[in-house]
């Protein structure tokens, strides 16, 4: 079956935790693959400790605001399918940094500030860090 067939995605809009659990499992598998690069063991573990709890936390949400639409579920599953194809542990390290942000963007929204200064972040206002609306911000942790 082609990887990109839409009907392989989970259905329904109340399966946020299930979807994010799948993402967390995929991330753990990627960590296992990356760990075979012994020289980078510390960095790989640092990435896991930093990002895995964030992915799990993205799955914890209640009420209508936490429901995922079909496109969001498909996006996460497509990201999972992508990292499942990786066989090179060095490439896995690159994706350990990228995958959490792809998932966060898929389930949490958008960034509106453009590179050339046009537009503005959707919830920006006085006193807010410009990165607060960033998909990266959700997983960035304390600074």
């Amino acid at each position: 079956m082609p990887l990109s067939r839409p009907d392989r995605y989970a259905k329904g809009v109340n399966d946020r935790q299930v979807v994010l659990d799948r993402a967390a499992d995929a991330y753990r598998a990627l960590l296992d693959l990356a760990e075979t690069v012994e020289d980078e063991w510390q960095y790989i573990n640092d990435l896991g400790e930093a990002y895995l709890p964030g992915i799990v936390a993205l799955g914890i949400s209640s009420g209508a605001a936490g429901e995922l639409g079909d496109a969001q579920v498909a996006a996460v599953d497509e990201a999972i399918a992508e990292i499942a194809l990786i066989a090179d542990p060095h490439k896995a390290i690159d994706w350990l940094s990228t995958f959490p942000h792809v998932v966060a963007l898929a389930v949490s929204g958008d960034v509106s500030a453009t590179g050339d200064g046009r537009g503005e972040a959707t919830e920006s206002g006085p006193g807010r860090d410009p990165d607060d609306d960033s998909p990266f911000g959700m997983l960035r942790g304390p600074r």
Binding site: S4, E78, T98, A113
Partner: peptide, 27 residues
């Protein structure tokens, strides 16, 4: 945008080169 840059990073790192995959990954 930051999101577009993230998409570009993922696509340039990706295993698959069909655009539909990446359009679905970044709704």
């Amino acid at each position: 945008t930051a999101a577009e840059r993230l998409m570009a990073r993922a696509a340039m790192n990706g295993e698959r080169t069909g655009p539909e995959v990446w359009r679905r990954m970044f709704p």
